[in-house]
Design a protein around this nucleic acid. Structure first.
Lengths: 223, 223
DNA sequence: CAATAATTTCACAAAATCATCACAATCATT
DNA sequence: AATGATTGTGATGATTTTGTGAAATTATTG
């Protein structure tokens, strides 16, 4: 799941945030000031940054600007007072949200989810090729043998998952988890129907979605 | 490309502007007050000046007058309140444009391009073509099939975003973030209404704004 | 301050997609 | 070949999403 970089000079605060976020499945990286944060950010892939404004050495404002020079990773500011936010916002510094201390666990988790949801799909590389199929995730467009194919939401997301993990077998449960979301309740046979329509729309290339009997489905260019 | 002198007493503001402008290919020089600004202006070739009004030592008004004694270099004022502008304008001080804080990256970059274009005619374009649609961001004018179309603010900004990122799908939340601002509260259905009016005003070309079912909208010339 | 324009919200209609079922087809095992 | 489990498929009603006109609210302009 997503990796979150927590940049705050207070050890207690970092541990508290970690305590909220890790049970939700997030991986947390801690940094105690802006400099250390930039170092971590350069070293590891980060999906979101929780950033304190008041910090020694390199403060939140400037940390943010440095990050923005090379990435559009979502940033949530942690502020002690709401009027600090005015400054961030006034500077249009490129923050995605802010949370005023003290905050509740729910609030933090909700904001993180919200920001990730909002910024999802704004990454750079989005085009995948698999045999005759070209999938452009950003444009949500699929081209098979040079001809565009119109897919529904579920069909498209299934295909993206398959193409991103070609060769890997997914059970119906796994597909439901990853395309429908973990809170989906209902028959696993729903997957079959979408596989069917997807295969039809892909034409010849539909054969690349293979049934793994007794297990599930996989996408494979080699037979 | 063009060199821009940024004169502002706030370090953050200067760095922020630099952050917006350098990715566009501009070279930036910073000065923290009017005196330093004049010194820089004398030392280097400058194509445009971004000038804060409120500054210690030598304020924006007088800085501007000094510059005007020896150059017609374009100057864009940065003002905290729009009524400060009245004074600049009232003094016939020779400014070319002004930007009210807080401003968005898009706005700054657009104004800079626009002023340079206006004063020199050699700067990169601010107009975008997409099929039958021509969007002139500087003039805030839209021409479809040779005929001008009058758009409201939100409609225009939606269209600019779409045309600049043609092919990319935006969720309603992303559109609200980028056109309305991240602190907008209200229904995401508002977007739908503006899409509707925009499509109507664009006539036939309105079809280029495509609905991506279950996701959002995109602007696409191809099918 | 009135008039006008722009924006937002609302309610309902229209459209697209989705989930489910029943039955047919296929597969693995004996 | 028979059997039971699994998968394919067409049809269909339910659900979700989007389009749209009109009213309400807000901002702008003279």
């Amino acid at each position: 799941m997503a990796t979150i970089l927590i940049v705050d000079d207070e050890k207690e605060m970092r541990e508290l945030l970690r305590l909220y976020l890790e049970p939700e499945g997030f991986t947390c990286i801690e940094a105690e000031d802006g400099e250390a944060g930039l170092a971590e950010f350069g070293r590891k892939h980060v999906d979101l940054i929780l950033l304190d404004i008041m910090m020694p050495k390199l403060d939140g404002y400037r940390f943010c600007m440095h990050v923005r020079e090379r990435s559009q990773v979502p940033i949530i500011f942690l502020t002690a007072r709401s009027d600090e936010w005015d400054r961030v916002y006034g500077l249009q510094i490129g923050a995605d949200d802010y949370i005023v201390k003290p905050f509740s666990p729910n609030e933090v988790v909700a904001r993180v989810h919200a920001v990730l949801r909002r910024t999802k799909g704004t990454d750079v590389t989005t085009s995948y090729e698999a045999g005759p199929i070209v999938v452009d995730e950003k444009a949500r467009k699929v081209i098979v043998n040079g001809k565009p194919v119109v897919l529904t939401l579920k069909e498209f997301e299934l295909l993206v998952l398959f193409v991103k993990h070609r060769g890997q077998v997914f059970t119906r449960e796994q597909l439901l988890d990853r395309v429908w979301g973990i809170h989906y309740v209902g028959s696993t046979r729903t997957v079959d129907t979408h596989i069917k329509t997807l295969r039809i729309k892909l034409g010849e290339a539909g054969q690349l979605i293979q049934t793994v009997w007794g297990v599930g489905y996989k996408f494979d260019e080699t037979i």
